[in-house]
Design a protein around this nucleic acid. Sequence first.
DNA 1: GCCCTATAGCGACAACCGTCGCGTTAAGAT
DNA 2: ATCTTAACGCGACGGTTGTCGCTATAGGGC
Lengths: 209, 209
Amino acid sequence: MTNPPPNTTDRRPGGRTARVRTQVLDAVRAELAESGHEGLTMEGVATRAGVHRATVYRRWRDVGGLLVDLIGAAGEIAWEPPDTGSLRGDLTALNREIQASLTEQPSFAVALMAASFHSEQAARAQTQLWDDRYAQCEVLVERAVRRGELPTAQRTDARNLLIAATAPVYHQLVLLRAVPDPDLPERAAAAAVLAAKAGAFSVPEDGGT
Amino acid sequence: MTNPPPNTTDRRPGGRTARVRTQVLDAVRAELAESGHEGLTMEGVATRAGVHRATVYRRWRDVGGLLVDLIGAAGEIAWEPPDTGSLRGDLTALNREIQASLTEQPSFAVALMAASFHSEQAARAQTQLWDDRYAQCEVLVERAVRRGELPTAQRTDARNLLIAATAPVYHQLVLLRAVPDPDLPERAAAAAVLAAKAGAFSVPEDGGT
DNA sequence: GCCCTATAGCGACAACCGTCGCGTTAAGAT
DNA sequence: ATCTTAACGCGACGGTTGTCGCTATAGGGC
């Protein structure tokens, strides 16, 4: 008997499995839109997807798992950091995006935050998501340095600058649950830029080579 | 028949009622310490307090309600904003307090945040709590202005300054779940001060009288 | 002390949640 | 076309959650 050529992974991602996945993810989106992150329940998703509860539990474990998979599905569409020609403009645009994502009904970002308190996978996915975004955004700072908008005597810590610029938006909307202030994105961006120009995020050039 | 003199409120806050309350709140603290905000459940609190489940549900409604009452009980002990002699020192001290409150095990602040996604009362209480704190902290800015640390040509919006200074700490610890950075409180405070000195939080003096 | 009644105790309940074992279906390889 | 078995469907289960109607207890005004 010839050795059977090894099965790639012994998985079956196609056909029915794939169909079930799209049904379930669609159901997640629909439930989220209809009843918000509070009404997002495993039972509800399964019923709406026309799939058995046990299936959802087996493949996604908990609500966090569903959201994580939704990130995966959405993450395939690329995101690009804004490029307006000035650091302040870029950060403002970024903040506007963030404010929109936290304000839209329903907010996927808020759902993920809520889930991250109950679900380990959701927590990890959230950290991952923001980390990636911030990494992508570091180019904003590099561009600003190249344009001469920032002091060049010392390197500017891009991550800290980005966090300083964006954190107030989250703070106001999530923690303080303030009504969205249309000027906040720009104010927060401007403040961060001023601080950066004053050298607030400069770090000693670490020894090269 | 003589009109019976009106009972003050027809409530009975004393005696057994008060005893039950302290038992329950003690149980909340204990459960929180033992199993964190994730393990804080109505059932568990009731059992530990030696009280019937229905009683806890009736009086506190949900986990959020318990936390809210805990704030009330703790809120009676006064909190004072730091006063170190400089704006930067004050904000750094404030940030250190915040970082400590988010890092301690278990963290009441984190528990309240988690609950605020499920419980309306918890959400309101959270907003209220931070609002009060920020209102109290505005004196920091006033003192700084009086000391001449900030530009006086225009008024500085204390609230925005405070949020810019403190938001990064929440952001790092809650959203990004980064490991606590001992330098962050100072860095964030310093950045906010620099921005403020550059006029980032100045607002047009609104026309008095 | 004696009432009145606010509040707590109690047990039952329906709903939901998550898991399990087992039978069925249909990918995907030959 | 056939076979193997991954993935799903199904129903049942034990545990938890939140509510309700009722009874018992005790606070506090008289």
